[in-house]
Design a protein around this nucleic acid. Structure first.
Lengths: 344, 344
DNA sequence: TCGCGCTCCGAGAGCGCTCTCACCCCCGCC
DNA sequence: GGCGGGGGTGAGAGCGCTCTCGGAGCGCGA
């Protein structure tokens, strides 16, 4: 077993370069106010020794960590298993590494995990947190606000209004996207447009329902049936729909998974898509939307960009240069686009 | 803006409890060798002050970080967007938090990212690394070994043989699973069993092909066609298959996505599944396998357990108690199970 | 009674870094 | 030629913790 050589310290670099530790430090941190020949010598010493700053020592004095926590609450496994999360993480990661920050991932399930996360965040191990909180009754947001560290939420938190309002979040335009989808169905000449909702304790689902209602204000209430973002829920809802309103000629499903379920039931019942019933989903979750039969028309959101934006907002912080950005101290809403495939 | 109160130090705890800093430290770290009344007093002081140890100060002296890096190389976005990754992460996360370790996520794309990751790992910021390296020519493994920190790989690295051999990895039994799948097809009475491969520079794909060959040793070479783990690749391969061997009566696809593509082409050509052609996939990637038409028979691997096991192996380290575990200093291979649905 | 050993606790050094402050040197100006 | 000023550098303190080491206290055997 090769004994791992002790890593070189700043002291060693300074000695080798023939300067003081202070000067070496200055060079390592940008080199301002150090004359060129010395900068050069220190740089060389760093290379030769393979010096890497000890982050622990550094943050001990600076009180900064160059690390942010990403907190993902995961009450249902469903949420976790979809590509959504992965893409968002990717956006976050890109932005963080561009600013030399590390990404500490905290996955939670269950109550004691919440306490653990709260403790961790309050413990000052990270400079900020990006939080994905999906449900209205989630205790996590409260814990986090109490921890008193900068936080950006993914998705509009349900309690944003009642609680002071200076909550920073990034969301996509669920309501607008839903509106676009329904308008498209209407433009296709459909008059009996149904909506299969998501779980309405999530703001995204609630907003999509609102978008539907914006366009179909005076529709038969029976055209709105509850789903739960799963294919099984979509099947159930579609059956109910065919039961109560067999004349339905279009369905806007709250997400692609739901739409996939609905599609299956429609085929089962011999309804042609889109001829008899046009179907639109939401998310543009590729492995699903492209694989359905027929391929699904759906509303796309730029998930990776959401992640990137979250990170950017967090890093910039409350006193960064906000000019030009919209609503820095509250929500930023990203646009959606309708992706036309075969189902509508 | 409420000025954030400076967090209490161990010094403060000690003062409040009326003991020395050393004793307070002892209590915080388990309390061995401290008499009960003092333990009690320190504990109370900790609670009252809401003391949380400063991890930076701690690791400065202990040289431990209670953090491990998870490195995910992501040459293709495809890899990232599937639930595989998320589930594995979950397993890892569970195991790590159970041992009070943090998870630092490093996503890489492109060459300079590799250098960055190498530097980070060599920089001694984490106690170990879990690495997902997918390709034979990936420079990452080399970099990491040079960094000299404990590492466990996810999936069998391609170069494990040539390079010393003491590589720790966790993989699922790709070859055995493939064998089971093909045997199942044979048991169904199929005689012209084809295989659509994955990208063969990944060991998982190569192993699945080997498993196929174990059973179909003397099959027509034209029954083996290359795919790339994508639905599009599956479609392409299936067309080729129908072209060259229109009498094909079973297909073992290297993964579920490939199978989904193949299924579509079969339907397009009017072949019934499973009556005319039986199809089996690999992965049991739920949103795909359950949504295909017909639902896909496939080989399931316990992905979350793989993640958990990786973390466990890493934390245990080279001198932990290995007895009872298999092959601690090299690979651990987890079993797979055939999940029967409608397609075979 | 005294000494020996053991357990428990406190003093203090030091981990590797940043940052303040004092100092030095060189320049320009009076 | 002397003096103020400023840019560049070094000395040293200190971040919050762990861990070693010595000393205090106590029980026990001689």
């Amino acid at each position: 077993m090769t004994e791992t050589a002790p890593r070189p310290t700043l002291e060693a670099v300074a000695a080798r370069a023939g300067v003081s530790r202070a000067t070496a430090s200055r060079v390592v941190n940008g080199g301002d106010g150090v004359r060129e020949p010395l900068v050069e010598r220190v740089r060389r010493a760093v290379d030769e020794l393979g010096y890497v700053p000890n982050q622990a020592a550094r943050s001990l004095v600076t009180k900064r960590h160059d690390a942010v926590a990403v907190v993902v609450a995961e009450p249902e496994t469903r949420v976790f298993a979809d590509p959504f999360f992965a893409l968002q993480l990717r956006g976050i990661s890109k932005e963080l590494t561009a600013h030399d920050n590390q990404l500490v991932l905290l996955l939670t399930e269950g109550r004691d995990d919440h306490a653990r996360v709260g403790r961790y965040l309050a413990g000052g191990h990270v400079d900020g947190a990006l939080v994905f909180s999906l449900h209205l009754d989630d205790p996590l947001p409260g814990l986090i606000r109490r921890a008193g560290i900068p936080t950006v939420f993914g998705g509009r938190p349900g309690w944003s209004d009642g609680d002071g309002g200076d909550v920073v979040y990034v969301d996509s335009d669920n309501r607008g996207g839903a509106r676009d989808a329904v308008r498209h169905l209407v433009a296709l000449g459909r008059t009996r447009v149904a909506h299969i909702t998501g779980p309405l304790d999530q703001t995204s689902a609630a907003d999509r329902l609102d978008g539907y209602r914006d366009v179909m204000a005076d529709a038969d209430p029976r055209l709105v049936v509850p789903g739960d973002f799963t294919p099984a829920g979509g099947e159930r809802a579609m059956r109910e729909l065919l039961d109560h309103r067999p004349d339905v000629d279009a369905v806007f499903a709250a997400n692609d998974l739901t739409a996939a379920g609905a599609l299956r039931v429609l085929r089962e019942h011999g309804r042609r898509v889109p001829e008899d019933v046009a179907v639109i989903g939401f998310d543009d979750m590729l492995p699903v939307a492209e694989q359905t039969d027929p391929p699904l028309t759906t509303v796309r959101q730029d998930i990776e960009e959401m992640g990137r934006l979250m990170a950017r907002l967090l890093l910039r912080g409350p006193d960064g240069p906000h000019t030009g950005e919209q609503a820095p101290r509250s929500g930023v809403v990203l646009p959606t686009t309708l992706v036309r495939r075969a189902s509508a």
